[in-house]
Structure formats: structure tokens, C-alpha cells
């Protein structure tokens, strides 16, 4: 019973809050205020949005809690990889100690951690992608018909047109690259954006009318 009440409550919250914020969006487009009505909506909407921002930030904490609990369990159950989990938690706790002891993210300690540990690691992980993209370029492209031909052709022109080297190969290359990006790609992306917008609206509406309830278990 209480569970059902919980579900209904969640659905009601999503619908009411969503409609209020949506109303705020449209009301703020109106020129006049209808006797303070629009102002009430505006204030309410703004308040709800600001609360949501805080809850979203807190939700990140939950993700972190998950990471910690996974690795803590792994250590306790002595599963393979315990040592790595230990290192993970150690570096986490170390970062926390440095951060809180030295007084926040702008403190000297946190800056050191960011500049010399976090930034190089994170950046290098993503740098590895380039190498694998190169490998994929070799394996993935097979021209079978006109369509794949165009795909590869456009990709190659843009690739070469983007770097100064392309000019040596063919002076017109950068110009053609610009044309590709400004005309056919613009058209294609705009069509995609319209579709995305429609999809977003439909998905959002489903949440606002309670047809979709991704927040329930």
C-alpha cells in the first residue's frame, strides 16, 4: 500500500513540477503579466529549477557512492583485482584528504593533484582513442557501392581540408571542405536536429503526462 502511495506521489511530483516549469517557460515569453499571475509562475519555476540543480549535483555523489561501495565490496570479498580496488580507494581517500585539508579545490594541494595527476591521466586516456581510430580507419572502410564511396570521399576531403597540408595536395581542398560543412552537412544536421527536437518533445511529454515513469523502480 505504502509503496503504491510512493509511486503515485512520485508521478504526481513529476507531473506537477514539470508542468509548473513548462508554464514558466511559456509565461516568460508573454508580454504582459496578467495581474501578477505570470510573476508567481516565474518565481515558482525559478525556485524549482534551482532546487533541481542542487539535487542533480547531489545525484553525482550517489554515483560516487556506488563506485566506492563496489570497490569496498570487492576488497572485502577478496575477489581478483582486490589490490587495484585498494589503490583506487586509496587514491580517492588521498584526494579527499588533500582537498579538504588544504581547503577546497582552489587550494595549492588540490591544484597539484589536478595538474599533475588527474589532468595527465584523464587526457591520456582520451588520447588513446586517436590511436584506435587510426586502426579502425584501416579496418572499417570498405567501398562497396556509391553510398560508401561518397561517405569515404567526404570523410577524406574533410580530413585533408582541415589541415594546412591539404593545400599542398590541392589548393581548392579547403574550399571544398568548407562547402561540405556549410551546405550538405548543414542540411543533414538540420534535418537530424528537427527529428531530435520532435523526439525530445515527445519523450518529455510522455514524462509530463505520466505515460513514462523512468523514476519508478
Amino acid at each position: 500500500m505504502s509503496i503504491r502511495i510512493g509511486r503515485v506521489l512520485a508521478t504526481v511530483v513529476a507531473i506537477v513540477v514539470g508542468l509548473l516549469v513548462l508554464a514558466d517557460l511559456f509565461v516568460s515569453q508573454w508580454p504582459n503579466s496578467f495581474g501578477g499571475f505570470s510573476q508567481i509562475i516565474n518565481v515558482t519555476g525559478a525556485l524549482l529549477v534551482s532546487w533541481a540543480a542542487i539535487v542533480i549535483a547531489f545525484a553525482l555523489f550517489l554515483g560516487f557512492a556506488n563506485v566506492i561501495s563496489v570497490h569496498w565490496t570487492r576488497i572485502r570479498s577478496q575477489k581478483p583485482g582486490t589490490i587495484y580496488s585498494g589503490i583506487l580507494l586509496l587514491s580517492l581517500v588521498g584526494t579527499l584528504i588533500v582537498g579538504f585539508y588544504s581547503g577546497g579545490p582552489n587550494s595549492y594541494g588540490s591544484q597539484l593533484v589536478f595538474d599533475f595527476v588527474l589532468q595527465p591521466l584523464e587526457a591520456t586516456f582520451f588520447a588513446l582513442l586517436a590511436i584506435f581510430i587510426a586502426a579502425a580507419a584501416f579496418r572499417a572502410f570498405r567501398i562497396r557501392d556509391l553510398e560508401t564511396f561518397f561517405f569515404v570521399l567526404f570523410a577524406v576531403i574533410v580530413l585533408l581540408g582541415q589541415v594546412p597540408l591539404g593545400i599542398y595536395l590541392w589548393p581548392e581542398l579547403p574550399v571544398i571542405k568548407d562547402w561540405i560543412l556549410n551546405v550538405p552537412t548543414l542540411a543533414g544536421v538540420r534535418g537530424i536536429l528537427l527529428g531530435v527536437a520532435l523526439g525530445t518533445i515527445a519523450t518529455g511529454l510522455r514524462i509530463l503526462i505520466g505515460a513514462d515513469r523512468p523514476y519508478t523502480d
Binding site: V13, A14, I15, V16, G18, A52, T203, G204, L208, P214
Partner: peptide, 11 residues
């Protein structure tokens, strides 16, 4: 639900 409601409206 609160967060999703706000998010859906903004979206």
C-alpha cells in the same frame, strides 16, 4: 521524479 519533471520541461 522531481529532477526528471524539471528536466523534461526544460527539454
Amino acid at each position: 521524479a522531481f529532477v526528471l519533471g524539471v528536466g523534461a520541461a526544460l527539454a
